[in-house]
Nucleic acid binder design. Structure first.
Lengths: 109, 109
DNA sequence: CTTACATATTGACATGTATCAATATCGTTG
DNA sequence: CAACGATATTGATACATGTCAATATGTAAG
């Protein structure tokens, strides 16, 4: 039972020629995760923290969204590879993965 | 009758602190335009042309989509400011606006 | 084990959108 | 003006998704 592929797709620069179907699917999924104002708010809010991370509970009030909705958005970004999560006791902390943003900048060149 | 605003929103780096509501709405609209495999295919296809542009008709066959669907995707990217359009006779040529991509790279920093 | 709190999941609903066939619009050419 | 080809718009349909209330799960503390 082999894994389908080591998931090395992604990131040829968009302007450097035609992308494969895998590349466009992968890139589009990430851009779609960024295509929501609430999620961009979350990212900028995380980046604004001195520790560069927030626990999920700290996002509910400033965003004015319900806890399930916040949880949903965090999941979307986590699955897109934009966020890392770490459990510390009862709380779960999220932080931005700067490598992923760098990868996107690369793809947009 | 004043215009609502000169549309100077956008582009503070995402990681530099909290974004305004206008900024996230504007940025999200652009990312949403990129969040579709077919549209990324179009961009890479345009970039692959020696002239850095295509007429709309040239996209239908390689993408395997209907003409109305291609027209729809082009409109989405045009309205997001990613593409420029120029009519030459019967044909309409689209090209990528590299400034917009540069702006996005900036926003992702 | 039970209570309390943080987070995730489920279900329901409304809205958005990708797609195509059919049709309309627009330029060019006769 | 009429005919033709390229592009855009409309209408219909299927599917995706943002949102919340209700509920489940998970962890720490008594």
């Amino acid at each position: 039972m082999k894994r389908s592929k080591p998931k090395a797709v992604c990131c040829s620069p968009l302007l450097a020629g035609r992308l494969t179907s895998d590349e466009t699917a992968h890139l589009a999924a990430i851009f779609r995760a960024l295509g929501e104002p609430a999620r961009l708010q979350m990212l900028s809010l995380i980046a604004a923290q001195p520790e560069q991370e927030v626990c999920a509970c700290e996002l509910v009030e400033p965003l004015g969204l319900s806890q399930p909705t916040v949880s949903h958005h965090l999941k979307v970004m986590y699955e897109a590879g934009l966020l890392a999560r770490e459990r510390r006791g009862t709380w779960i902390y999220y932080r931005i993965l700067p490598e992923k943003l760098a990868m996107l900048r690369e793809a947009l060149s």
